[in-house]
Amino acid sequence: HNLTITQGKLFFHYNPKLCLSEIHKMEEVSGTKGRQERNDIALKTNGDQASCENELLKFSYIRTSFDKILLRWEPYWPPDFRDLLGFMLFYKEAPYQNVTEFDGQDACGSNSWTVVDIDPPLRSNDPKSQNHPGWLMRGLKPWTQYAIFVKTLVTFSDERRTYGAKSDIIYVQTDATNPSVPLDPISVSNSSSQIILKWKPPSDPNGNITHYLVFWERQAEDSELFELDYCLKGLKLPSRTWSPPFESEDSQKHNQSEYEDSAGECCSCPKTDSQILKELEESSFRKTFEDYLHNVVFVPRKTSSGTGAEDPRPSRKRRSLGDVGNVTVAVPTVAAFPNTSSTSVPTSPEEHRPFEKVVNKESLVISGLRHFTGYRIELQACNQDTPEERCSVAAYVSARTMPEAKADDIVGPVTHEIFENNVVHLMWQEPKEPNGLIVLYEVSYRRYGDEELHLCVSRKHFALERGCRLRGLSPGNYSVRIRATSLAGNGSWTEPTYFYVTDYLDVPSNIA
Rank of each mutant, 00 (worst) to 15 (best):
443 V>L: 09
505 L>H: 05
433 E>L: 14
301 R>A: 02
478 Y>D: 00
416 H>A: 07
203 S>P: 05
378 E>P: 03
407 A>H: 15
480 V>H: 00
252 Q>M: 13
391 C>M: 10
312 P>A: 05
220 A>M: 13
395 A>Q: 03
337 F>D: 07
316 R>M: 12
242 W>T: 07
371 H>K: 05
297 V>I: 12
395 A>S: 10
360 N>W: 15
450 D>P: 15
509 S>M: 09
311 D>S: 11
459 R>S: 13
364 L>R: 12
213 L>V: 02
503 D>P: 15
441 Y>C: 01
272 T>E: 11
379 L>T: 06
501 V>R: 05
269 C>H: 01
292 Y>L: 02
258 E>V: 06
226 F>R: 13
271 K>V: 03
458 S>R: 09
427 M>L: 07
290 E>G: 09
442 E>N: 01
367 S>G: 06
349 P>M: 04
417 E>H: 03
285 F>P: 02
371 H>C: 06
206 N>F: 03
289 F>H: 03
328 T>C: 13
276 I>Y: 08
467 G>R: 10
232 L>K: 08
424 V>I: 02
234 G>L: 05
401 T>V: 09
228 L>S: 03
427 M>K: 13
489 G>A: 08
463 A>G: 12
331 V>N: 13
307 T>Y: 15
418 I>V: 12
216 W>I: 09
264 G>D: 09
333 T>L: 12
365 V>L: 08
332 P>F: 04
455 L>S: 10
239 S>L: 05
464 L>N: 09
444 S>Y: 14
282 E>S: 05
354 P>F: 09
361 K>A: 12
487 L>N: 06
427 M>G: 13
392 S>A: 01
243 S>A: 08
424 V>E: 10
374 G>S: 07
353 R>I: 13
412 G>L: 11
356 E>V: 13
221 E>W: 07
495 E>L: 03
383 N>L: 08
389 E>C: 12
385 D>V: 12
332 P>I: 09
215 F>Q: 12
440 L>W: 15
236 K>T: 03
322 G>W: 12
223 S>C: 08
392 S>T: 00
391 C>H: 11
499 F>V: 12
463 A>E: 06
425 H>T: 09
387 P>W: 11
350 E>L: 05
437 L>V: 10
311 D>P: 09
318 R>L: 07
288 T>W: 05
325 G>K: 06
325 G>W: 14
398 S>C: 08
298 F>K: 02
427 M>Y: 11
461 H>R: 10
388 E>Y: 15
355 F>W: 12
337 F>P: 08
307 T>D: 15
435 N>P: 01
250 D>P: 07
224 E>Q: 09
460 K>N: 05
482 I>Y: 01
237 L>M: 09
282 E>M: 07
